[in-house]
Simulated scan of single mutants.
Amino acid sequence: MHKAKNYLLGLAIALIGSISCSESQDFDQIDALEVTPTVEASMIYVEAPERIINQLTGVNFIQQTFNFDAFAEDFVSENLLDGVVSYELENTTSKPLEVLIEFLDDADNVLDSEFFTMPAAPTALLRRDVAYGMGGRNIDIIRNTSGIRVSAENLGDNSSTSSLPNPMVILRSSAAFRIRLQ
């Protein structure tokens, strides 16, 4: 009798335990998953030695358009949320400079631009971050950009030379954008 009671009690506990611990599984949870990675990449790197800059004065010593199809895919363009474009300019030349960066659409229309004035060396590294999307400039600028034009002008003479080793102007640009995947 005692054995039968223990057997029934054990069976009842096992039955209650298996019922109370099981729950139907929801395999549709993937539909509610939101993934928004931040994609970072270098955009532009341009350097011009002072000897090249000395060859031209009062005109652009750099004027170049770079292809930019990073957001040409519809999926990426439509799911682009926001981001930041970062610029770094370094001038170790004896020349004051102006640098213009323009974002262009397919028809070479200017969508946005950034203008920099740099004194002659010695100067500090010039850094600027420009936000697009939430709280920044319109994200459609980036979505519709297919080219980036860089122009730089020597505002000084064409004979002086910096006393610093290997004098040049360097432009670096990178971007970090959030993209919604679902």
Rank of each mutant, 00 (worst) to 15 (best):
L171K: 01
A41C: 08
G10C: 11
R172S: 01
E88C: 08
I52V: 10
T38F: 08
E98H: 05
V169F: 03
S42N: 12
I139N: 09
F116I: 05
T38D: 13
A176D: 10
E73V: 04
V85H: 07
S146V: 06
D26T: 08
S77M: 07
L33K: 13
F61S: 06
I16N: 06
D74R: 10
Q55M: 12
T93I: 04
Q64A: 11
G17S: 15
G136N: 03
T92D: 02
S22V: 14
Q182C: 05
I53F: 00
D31I: 08
F27D: 13
R149L: 11
R180P: 00
K3P: 07
D31K: 14
L11P: 00
N6Q: 13
M118P: 02
Q25R: 15
S162M: 04
V85I: 15
I30H: 15
G17K: 06
E47N: 09
R178Q: 14
L89F: 09
S163R: 06
P37T: 00
N154Y: 06
I30A: 12
L181M: 08
F116C: 06
E114H: 02
G156H: 08
V130E: 05
E88G: 10
E73S: 14
A124S: 11
Y45L: 10
P122D: 11
K95C: 07
L8Y: 13
L155D: 03
A124N: 09
R137S: 13
S146G: 03
I44G: 03
I30R: 12
D140C: 05
D112Q: 10
E102W: 02
E88R: 10
E73N: 07
I53H: 01
S18D: 12
L104W: 03
T117R: 12
L81M: 12
E73T: 08
Y45T: 11
Q64V: 06
A120F: 01
N54G: 02
G17L: 15
V84Y: 06
G156N: 05
S159F: 10
R128N: 05
S18W: 14
G136I: 01
L8A: 15
R128F: 02
Q25E: 14
M118Y: 00
I148K: 05
D31T: 12
F115P: 00
R172E: 00
Q25T: 15
G156T: 02
I16G: 11
L80I: 09
E98M: 14
L171C: 04
N154L: 07
I16V: 15
A175N: 11
K5Q: 04
F66T: 01
R178I: 03
Q29A: 15
N60H: 08
E153I: 15
G10I: 09
I52P: 02
N6S: 07
D82L: 10
A175C: 11
S42P: 11
E114A: 10
Y87Q: 04
T117E: 12
D69H: 06
Y7S: 13
F115I: 07
Q55Y: 04
S113Q: 14
L104G: 01
N138W: 05
L11S: 14
S146I: 00
M134D: 10
G135K: 00
T65V: 07
E98R: 15
R127P: 02
I142E: 03
